[in-house]
């Protein structure tokens, strides 16, 4: 029964998205979905493990550049490119995470930012010979068309990332309900207790870090394939806080937070920047407001009302 219920929520969300596909321009829909995949990792780290990272673009760039190098220099199959992005993301976050998760949460946030800055300059200047610096790598024409879902076509690409996002949702939902999810919450709330129970805080955090940032790297690969182009701008320090902002907007640690936040953020950015040049003012104030009003975010605020509306009296699950 319980399984059915959350499936309903996700199906509904995706039905809405699918419907949105008809009304919204395709690039907008694609951007939202990739952005929400991008945010899932940050949402998981912040909501479940209590780690805030101002350096998510670092991992995004790792995935994006892994895919880009493959598609530019070696191969043509975008699927292999994406798989490579995931693989490299996994390896990098496993290595980096082994050091980073030892740090206190405030240092953690800033060290990740430092990593993003390093990768930015690495890609822009130091490795300019292979990354072509600010000009970026263009490989849209290199990508071969693939059977079933041809990722070169935006329409097919939409269906593909739609399915990927859905699978990720199911995966994170599964994690939330599993023992591992409980342990993650444990390290966030009371690490001493968890240690007494015989779990290692370090390895739980490390695992969580790997999972979250491999997801982020996947988002990077998807960006690469979608645009057929990668430049250092993807990890620009000024964009470092985007996923954090979206996570908070959507509602920290909630299942639908990333998608709601992405829609809100992308939408506001596109809409507001059309009307007023300074959408930052609005987003910033909204962020402060959400934090002061109980940090529930858009989804966290709507959730109880929606539950009331969708469930009959007395059957609302807690």
């Amino acid at each position: 029964m319980k399984v059915l219920k959350w499936w309903w929520g996700i199906l509904l969300a995706f039905l809405l998205l699918g419907a949105a596909r008809i009304f919204l321009p395709l690039p907008f829909a694609n951007e939202i979905i990739i952005f929400s995949i991008y945010t899932m990792g940050c949402n998981f780290l912040l909501g479940r493990v209590g780690f805030i990272s101002f350096g998510q673009p670092a991992y995004l760039a790792v995935g994006a550049y892994a895919t880009a190098f493959y598609l530019y220099y070696f191969g043509t199959n975008p699927y292999i490119g994406i798989l490579l992005g995931i693989g490299v993301g996994l390896v990098v976050s496993a290595i980096v995470g082994a050091f980073f998760v030892r740090l206190r949460s405030d240092y953690f946030a800033l060290v990740n930012l430092a990593l993003a800055v390093i990768i930015f300059y690495l890609m822009e200047k130091v490795l300019a010979k292979i990354t072509h610096g600010d000009n970026g790598l263009w490989f849209l024409a290199n990508m071969s068309s693939t059977p079933v879902l041809n990722l070169g076509k935006p329409g097919d690409f939409f269906i593909f990332i739609f399915l990927v996002a859905m699978a990720l949702w199911a995966f994170y939902k599964y994690l939330d309900d599993s023992l591992f999810g409980a342990c993650c919450l444990g390290t966030k709330i009371n690490e001493d207790k968890l240690r007494f129970l015989g779990y290692s805080n370090y390895s739980i955090r490390w695992m969580a870090f790997i999972i979250a940032n491999t997801t982020t790297a996947l988002a990077g690969s998807l960006y690469a394939v979608y645009f057929g182009f990668v430049s250092p701008a993807i990890t620009h320090p000024a964009r470092a806080a985007d996923p954090v902002v979206v996570t908070i907007l959507g509602g920290v640690g909630t299942l639908y937070g990333p998608i709601v936040g992405s829609i809100a953020y992308t939408g506001m950015k596109d809409l507001l920047s059309g009307f007023i040049a300074n959408w930052e003012l609005f987003i910033g104030l909204l962020l402060v407001f959400i934090m002061l009003a109980g940090e529930k975010g858009i989804w966290g605020t709507l959730d109880p009302y929606l539950k009331k509306a969708f469930y009959r009296k007395g059957t609302v699950p807690k």
Binding site: W279, E280, L287, V288
Partner: peptide, 13 residues
């Protein structure tokens, strides 16, 4: 950290 980032962001706007 998040709240102060919001202030910074709003201030930039």
């Amino acid at each position: 950290m998040i709240t102060s980032f919001g202030i910074l962001f709003a201030g930039i706007g």
